[in-house]
Simulated scan of single mutants.
Amino acid sequence: MPRHTKRSERTAPALPDAGSPCPCGLPAAYGECCGRLHRGEEAAPTAERLMRSRYSAFVVRDAAYLLRTWHSSTRPPRLELDEGMRWSGLEITGATDGSAFHSRGTVTFRARYRHHGKRGELHERSEFAREGGAWVYVDGTFLD
């Protein structure tokens, strides 16, 4: 007879592997999309692309990438990611500047999550700038 378990007893969902759909929402596999950025094989060409890759880094719990792509003036000395946080979807709702022709840009987004089983949503306008030629996250303003 099958064993029935409560939702809280189930194991955490598996992290995406190289062939999984990319958490950032673009139509590519993680390994060929944000995984390439996380591994340092290429840099994000736009502020929006960096935002998407940072969201995916939260999903896969890649604190090193998050720190590496954080502006030196606002970067914390370390980053501990909450094991109880499960990111479940990203929606980009707006962007200004942030292309190859700009030195600054903003990306507004909504990110859905579950924290210890409770649903939530983060709505933020993130600021990005170029540092050493690469796009980096500067800071963000919570909206709503």
Rank of each mutant, 00 (worst) to 15 (best):
R3M: 11
K6Y: 12
E9L: 04
E9T: 05
T11M: 07
A14P: 00
D17E: 12
A18E: 15
A18K: 03
G19D: 15
S20C: 08
P21L: 09
C24N: 12
C24P: 04
L26R: 15
E32V: 14
G35L: 00
R39C: 01
E41M: 04
A43K: 02
A47S: 11
M51T: 09
R52N: 08
S53K: 07
R54N: 10
Y55N: 07
A57D: 06
A57P: 04
F58G: 01
F58S: 02
V60Y: 06
D62N: 15
A63R: 06
L67D: 07
R68H: 13
T69Q: 04
T69H: 08
H71E: 11
H71N: 09
S72W: 01
S73A: 15
R75T: 01
R78A: 15
L79G: 08
G84V: 02
M85W: 09
M85F: 11
W87M: 08
T93I: 14
G98R: 01
S99Q: 02
S103E: 15
T106N: 06
R114G: 00
S126M: 06
A129Y: 01
G132C: 05
G132S: 06
G132L: 01
W135S: 02
V136R: 15
Y137M: 01
V138Q: 07
G140F: 05
F142E: 15
L143A: 09
L143Y: 09
D144H: 13
